[in-house]
């Protein structure tokens, strides 16, 4: 019986092997292909590392993704803490309110920022009413707009992973720390933070990694200065038809994702 039953995993596993794992190898294969179509070459990779444009853009992508991650962490930790330790009755409602936008369309959310941030748009009107009048906000089509929208899209991940970690901490431990004479600050850094660290690490993973590979938000909100490395890949496939070169950059991005995941895991996500 059990021998048959284990084969039930086959259809799902095969689907993933064929349509998720195998394509990555095909991408690797293309990245070594010569544009003339014969033989293999390192030229696609050499081209990437030769031009400072690509390296600079990669650098800016990493820095922007780090910025998004840090801002997300700074706003998420207090929120998760309040939810886990202070709220009683409305806790689950707040939790749902944080989760709902995650399941709304990515493009719609980006588009909503386009409307909101545009010059003469609603944000400008709101600031006018508050007396912080400024003709022409000038936020749209900058890197700032991209960072704002990425924080908006990804910080709920961080809130939830940290909240789950904080929820598990027994309040008696915090009281014990207090009654043994530790100040609030000491309790936070010696008890609360270490015990919720796994949530912080999973949150960082869930925010930083998707930011590295984003291209829709920079394209719509970023203007010329706000581009990410993903946009260069997109252009290679849709505008320039440099598929082999595009595959090489995509593979480098994939490698960056793997390295980032490994580094973040080493920060201690798995230890409890």
């Amino acid at each position: 019986m059990n021998n048959y039953k284990k084969w039930l995993t086959a259809p799902g596993t095969l689907t993933l092997l064929v349509f998720a794992v195998a394509p990555l190898f095909i991408m690797l294969f293309y990245s070594f292909r010569n544009d003339s179509g014969v033989g293999f070459t390192l030229q696609n990779y050499v081209r990437f590392f030769e031009k400072s444009f690509y390296l600079k853009l990669t650098g800016r992508t990493v820095i922007s993704s780090l910025t998004v991650t840090v801002i997300s962490l700074l706003i998420s930790y207090p929120l998760a803490y309040i939810m886990a330790k202070k709220l009683k009755g409305i806790r689950n409602i707040v939790l749902m309110l944080i989760i709902i936008p995650f399941f709304t369309n990515q493009l719609v959310r980006v588009y909503s920022w386009l409307i909101f941030l545009q010059d003469g748009g609603v944000l400008e009107e709101m600031l006018n009413v508050l007396g912080m009048a400024q003709d022409g906000l000038g936020i749209l089509y900058t890197r700032t707009a991209v960072v704002i929208s990425l924080v908006h899209i990804f910080f709920p991940y961080m809130v939830i992973t940290i909240y789950i970690a904080l929820e598990r901490i027994d309040n008696a431990l915090l009281e014990a720390s207090k009654s043994l004479g530790a100040s609030a600050v000491t309790t936070f850094f010696r008890v609360t933070l270490p015990m919720s660290w796994s949530g912080v690490v999973s949150g960082i993973l869930l925010v930083f990694v998707p930011c590295l590979g984003c291209f829709v938000e920079p394209r719509i909100l970023g203007g010329v200065d706000g581009m990410f490395i993903g946009n260069v890949i997109e252009d290679q496939f849709f505008e320039i038809y440099g598929w082999n070169f595009g595959a090489a950059i995509a593979f480098l991005l994939f490698a960056m994702v793997l390295v980032a995941m490994a580094l973040i895991h080493r920060m201690g996500g798995e230890k409890q």
Binding site: L16, A22, P23, I26, M27, C214, I233, G246, F254
Partner: peptide, 22 residues
């Protein structure tokens, strides 16, 4: 492996499938 597609950017999943078609 089942949850792997959650952690790989969709950009990479999409274009690697495009290359497979090609």
């Amino acid at each position: 492996m089942m949850v792997m597609p959650l952690s790989i950017p969709w950009l990479i999943m999409g274009l690697s499938l495009l290359l497979m078609i090609r």
